[in-house]
Amino acid sequence: MAMDGAVPLPLYRDFLAQAYHHVRHTCRLLALAAARTDDDDYRAALFDYITEEQGHEQWILDDIDAAGGDAAQVAASVPGQACRAMLAYVYDAIERVSPYALLGMVHVLEGMSTLLASRAADALQRAYRSEGTSGFRYLTSHGALDKEHVAFFEQLVDGLCAPEALPVIADTANMVYRLYGDIFRDLSRGLDSVQGGACHAA
C-alpha cells in the first residue's frame, strides 16, 4: 500500500505517531541492556548505538508537523495498545530473560526499515506531491542509516554474542515481528473504520 503511494495522509500521520512512541524508547532500551550485560564489548557497542540514535524521535515530530499534524499533541499522547504491548515485551525480555533480547528487536525494526523505508518515502512523496524531504526525514534517513545498523547487528551476533544468546535473539525477533505487525494491523483497522463510516454516510 505504501509502496504505490496509496496511504492517505492521516494514516501516514498515525503511523508517525506510533513510530514516535517506540523510537523515543530506543535509547532507554539500549541503556537498559547495557546496564544488565556482563559483556564489556556488547556494552561498548550499545553505548555507540545510543549516540547514533539520540534525537531521532524529534525527527518524527518534525515530520508530523510538516505533514499537517500536531506534534505537541502526539508527544503528549499515549501509545496505541499494540505499541505499548511491543515496548512492554521488549523491556521485560531485557530485564527478565537476557540483555541480548534487545538484538531481536533491532533485527526486526532496523531490518524492516532497510527494506521498506526509502521506497515507501519515495512513493509517498510522489503521492502527496511533496518537494524535498519535508515530512519524510524519519523514513528517508532510516532507509540508509539502518543499513549500518543491520551491519551492527550482524557484527554483534557473529563476533560478540555468546552462543547461548542466539535462541534469545531469535525468540525475541519472532515476538517482535508479531507485535510490530499488530501496530500496522491496528492502523489498518482504523483506516477501515474511517472509510466504512464515510461510505455509510454517503
Rank of each mutant, 00 (worst) to 15 (best):
V194E: 11
A120C: 14
R129L: 12
A202V: 15
V168H: 02
Q125T: 15
Q81P: 09
A71N: 00
D186T: 04
D40N: 07
F152M: 07
L187P: 04
Q155V: 06
Y100M: 11
H149D: 06
H107P: 01
G104L: 03
Y12V: 13
A76C: 06
E110L: 01
M86Y: 04
A31E: 14
D14C: 10
R119K: 15
W59M: 11
Q54H: 07
Y89G: 07
D186F: 02
D62K: 07
A85D: 09
S134R: 14
D40M: 08
P8Y: 03
L16T: 07
D171P: 00
C27T: 08
Y42D: 06
A117F: 00
L145V: 13
V7W: 04
G80V: 06
G104N: 08
L87M: 05
G111K: 02
P79V: 03
T26L: 00
M3A: 13
L160V: 15
A76E: 13
Q73V: 12
H107W: 10
G135M: 00
D62H: 09
L115V: 15
A17M: 04
Q18G: 07
F184C: 06
R13T: 07
A2L: 12
G196V: 09
D65V: 05
Y12I: 08
F153C: 00
H21G: 03
P10W: 11
A67S: 12
V90E: 03
Y138D: 05
